[in-house]
Nucleic acid binder design. Sequence first.
RNA 1: GGCGCAGUAGCCAAGCGGUAAGGCAAUGGUCUGCAACACCAGUACGCACCGGUUCAAAUCCGGUCUGCGCCUCCA
Length: 468
Amino acid sequence: MKVYNTLSKKKETFTPLEEGKVKMYVCGPTVYNLIHIGNARPMIVFDTVRRYMEYKGYEVNFVSNFTDVDDKIIKKAVEEGVSAQEISKRYIEECKKDMENMNVKTATVHPLATEEIDGMLEMISTLIEKGYAYSTADGTVYFRTRKFKDYGKLSHKNLDELQAGHRDIKVTREDKEDALDFVLWKPKKEGEPYWESPWCQGRPGWHIECSVMSKKYLGEEIDIHAGGEDLIFPHHENEIAQSEACNGKIFAKYWLHNGFLNIDNKKMSKSLGNFFTVREIQEKYDLQVLRFFMLSAHYRSPLNFSADLMEAAKNGLDRIRNSAKNLNYLSQNAKVVQMAEQEAEFWKESDVFVTKFESSMDDDFNTADAISVVFELVKYINTKVNEASSKEFLDKLYQRMCLLCDILGIILEEKEEILEEEIETLITERQAARKEKNFARADEIRDILLKKGIILEDTREGVKWKKA
RNA sequence: GGCGCAGUAGCCAAGCGGUAAGGCAAUGGUCUGCAACACCAGUACGCACCGGUUCAAAUCCGGUCUGCGCCUCCA
């Protein structure tokens, strides 16, 4: 299995630190609002990485945090006149609902920054002892960036370039030894949540939490650290500095980063008004469609989001689901016999799709390619299967489809929705009318239902309905 | 100013040295009381442009144009 490592800028063969086990950390969201579809990309992508690793037989210890102390949370709390904790708690719950609806597996541990303050104080103290950090008059603690020789190895920047970088809005604080030093601990402001520390009453800087939580739940050395590409600098660069300066060991072996999600070819931002929450997408689509859409491009490429693209993704997913549905339908009526000789040959022949799927995924999780293999399987199934097929053959093919889709986190079974009784009755009446060849009445009922927003389709599996 | 990514059919998107996967849409067909759905079948002499290397280039090298990202909170 090859993975692209941001550290080396190359695809590398994946070899875990410990045979058969994977230690993986994914930077989670700051919970100050409902998550947006940009937040959803790393969740979906790295959940898929995890699923594939598990499929390959690895035992994956997957840790993903919730940042529950932060300026934006405090700001939101002030706006609503409630505590910061109330805000973070609320949006963690909402986020978990969204994750479930996107079929993102729960992490082995979902640590909260506010519950790991002790570990942070400990790491900051060690960094000060080792000369990698210093505190200032007001109790702010900074990381001494220039002291860490490898600084810049992830983002491939060197300190002088960084400093020479033209930035209009460059806020440098007077008490820093160097403009590049970043905050580990900062004093509270009036009304803000705070914790006691040797330096002042205050709260942690953003970067320290991930270093600490990763260490606590996965150890000083981990296999994979992942997140959005925007986190490469400064967040992940700073994490490396903190962890490696503190532990004296290589922090993470592989660094994976997903590309950004754009809206109509523009960066998503509130000011442009092109900001979508996962919840808003859910009003219009099953979140499986969102997931399928996100996996239809390579995770490192930028991905454009638009209404048309979602619609295309929906139609594509439907093709896969229809094929699965058809297998189920045929299976229900199939003869319970063993595979015929030719079916056994076809079955054997379809092994190739599993092999191809795996080699796509082995190549840096090429889900776009993997999905194309699923479509090839769909076509194969559609052309090889009919009313005369044996139950064994049908069921095996169905299981094979499920196997591949499950790795992608795509669910094939659809939730059964319940119709109002009145509509149910009309559908039954229409069926009766059709049987008596009273097509006028049948069409009349179809029109009535259409006006109620129900579209009927007469398929060979019986009448199907969907909402307009 | 520095660092970096990308340009493949109407749209999306794999391929990354051996002669263009897959999906959506459009088109033709099969099925159906009709409609819809579903299924099947075609669909790029070509991979932004100009040069170069090679027996062979969408893939490597140089240049040009265009779009985008990071360097500041951000997934």
